[in-house]
Nucleic acid binder design. Structure first.
Lengths: 266, 266
DNA sequence: GTAATAGTGTCTGTGAGACATTATGGC
DNA sequence: GCCATAATGTCTCACAGACACTATTAC
C-alpha cells in the first residue's frame, strides 16, 4: 500500500465533499455526560446526587451531569462537571468512562444519549452547589439501592441502573487497578489500615483479615511507597502506623481478590 | 417517602411540560453504533472490516456500523447490524458494549457520537456484503495493528483505536467470562484442544501448556459440560477427543489467567 | 496498667507451572 | 510399527486464609 497523507486525498471533488456534508438527513439526538462520583464517608461508600429543580422528575434525585458542549468530548465534559460539582481537579481523582445509555425514551422530553463516567474522589467537606442544582448530597450507596421499608429515595431517569453499573465497576476494578488510594488523601499519606477500610467500604464487608491484607498489598509490585514517618490513620484510632503513598503500578499483580461468591461483572 | 406513581405526577401543568420540551435549544449530534466483530480463522484472531464506498475516507477500511434509528437503542442497532453484516443472530454470538467515542472532529463532516460494540462469533464461510459496503473482509488483527513494512492497511476515522480497545477487552475478558466458546460451533460440541486454540489465538501465543490448560478449564465450576461422545476436533488432527458444550457459569472461577507481564487493561 | 490497633511469623490448603507417562487413533 | 495428539499423574513453588504472638500508642 502506498503512503497515505490523510483522508482529504480521497476526495474527488469539492462538490462531493459538500454533498456528503448535509447532516440534516441523519437522525439527531442530544448528548450528555453523567457522573457517578463516589467517595467514602464514615466508612460508607457514598455517591453524589443532585436534586432536580426542573421538569421532568422535578424533586427527584439525579446524577450530576449535563450537556456535552459542541467543542468538547464527553471526557472533557465529565472533567468539567466533576470540577463544577465538587471543586476537585481530575488530577486528584480517578475518572473513567463507564457506559453509554441510549434507550429511546429514557428522557421523556426528547432523545438523549448519555455517557456515564465513574469518578472516585477523596472525602471532601461538602459538595459544591451547582448552578442548576437546587441541592447536592452524598448518599450512602446502600441506602439508595437497598433502602429500608419507607426509606426509598426517588431516582430520576435510569439513574438507578447507572449507579448499579458504576458500583459494580468500582467493586471489580479495585481488585486489579491501583484506584483505591484515590479515595484517600495522598498529600498526607495513608496507612495500610486506611486502605483496608477503603476496600471494606467499597465491598460492603467489615472483616478483611488485617494481617493477610497487609501482606497482600505490600507484595503487590509498585503499588505502595513507604514514606518513612509514622503518622496517624485517616480513619482509625490507636497506635500510630507507617504511612504510604501511591506507587507507579498501572495494575495490581497479584490482584487483591475478594471472594468469588459474587455476581458476574461488567 | 410517599408512594410514587411516575414522573408525570411531578408536572405542575401541561404548559410547563411543553415548555421544557423544546429540544432545539440543546446541541444535537448524530449517533452511530460500530461493531468490532471478532472470529478465528486458521488459528488467527480476525476482525470484520468493510471498505468504504463513499466519502470521507473513501476506499479506506472501516468497522461495520451505522446510524442508530430513532426508535432503537444502540444495543438494538448493534444486534441489527451484526445480523446484516454476518447473517448471525445475536443468540449465537457474544455481544456487549465496548465504549463510546465522542471526539468533536472524529468525523470530518459533522459531530458523530459512536458507541462501539464487541461481538464474538463462530467462524463463518464468508461475510455478507452489506448494502452500502463495497466490500467486506476478515483481516487478521495482528496484520492490522502490527503490519509489516509496506503492508499497512489504511483505517478510517478512529477505528484503529476502537479495534485496539476491542482487542484488549476480548483478551482480558476471556480470562474470567465464559465467552471463548462463542468462537466455536456449539451445536456439534468442541474439544478441550479447540478451546485451547481459541485462547492461543486470542492471546497471540502458541504454547499454552496442554495438560495444565485441560486441568484448569475442567476445574472451573459449570464452565464445560461433557457431551459423552468422542468426536473430532474442529481444528486439529490426530486422536479423537471428548466433546464438550458451554455450561451455565456466568463467570469463571478460578479464572483462566494469562501471564502478568502485560499492559494494563480497560 | 488496659484497650485498641499495628505489625510479624508460621501452618496449611490450593492452584499453576513443569514434566513424565500412558492411551488412542490415523497412516 | 510410528507419529501425533489426548488424557492422567505427580512434584514443587507461590499465594491466600487462618491463627498465634509481639509491639506501640492513647487513655
Amino acid at each position: 500500500m502506498t503512503e497515505t497523507t490523510g483522508y482529504l486525498d480521497t476526495m474527488e471533488s469539492e462538490e462531493e465533499f459538500l454533498k456528503s456534508y448535509d447532516a440534516s438527513e441523519y437522525p439527531s439526538v442530544s448528548y450528555t455526560a453523567d457522573l457517578t462520583i463516589f467517595t467514602i464517608r464514615n466508612g460508607r461508600l457514598c455517591i453524589l446526587m443532585v436534586k432536580r429543580g426542573g421538569h421532568p422528575f422535578k424533586g427527584y434525585w439525579a446524577l450530576p451531569g449535563g450537556f456535552v458542549g459542541p467543542d468538547e468530548s464527553s471526557e472533557q465534559a465529565a472533567v468539567r462537571e466533576l470540577k463544577e460539582e465538587t471543586g476537585i481537579d481530575v488530577s486528584t481523582a480517578w475518572l473513567e468512562q463507564l457506559q453509554t445509555y441510549s434507550e429511546p425514551h429514557r428522557d421523556p422530553r426528547m432523545r438523549v444519549i448519555s455517557t456515564a463516567y465513574l469518578a472516585l474522589i477523596p472525602n471532601i467537606s461538602a459538595p459544591v452547589a451547582g448552578d442548576d442544582a437546587a441541592e447536592a448530597h452524598f448518599f450512602a450507596v446502600d441506602d439508595l439501592l437497598n433502602p429500608a421499608e419507607g426509606e426509598e429515595i426517588a431516582l430520576a431517569f435510569d439513574h438507578e441502573q447507572i449507579i448499579r453499573d458504576g458500583l459494580r465497576r468500582c467493586r471489580d476494578k479495585i481488585e486489579w487497578a491501583p484506584i483505591a488510594p484515590t479515595f484517600l488523601d495522598d498529600s498526607t499519606g495513608f496507612t495500610i489500615a486506611d486502605l483496608r477500610r477503603v476496600y471494606e467500604s467499597v465491598w460492603g464487608v467489615e472483616n478483611l483479615h488485617e494481617a493477610n491484607f497487609r501482606r497482600k498489598v505490600l507484595t503487590v509490585k509498585d503499588f505502595l511507597i513507604p514514606i518513612g514517618h509514622k503518622g496517624s490513620s485517616q480513619f482509625s484510632t490507636g497506635r500510630s502506623a507507617d504511612l504510604y503513598k501511591l506507587g507507579t503500578a498501572k495494575m495490581l499483580f497479584p490482584p487483591i481478590l475478594r471472594r468469588a461468591d459474587d455476581e458476574p461483572v461488567e
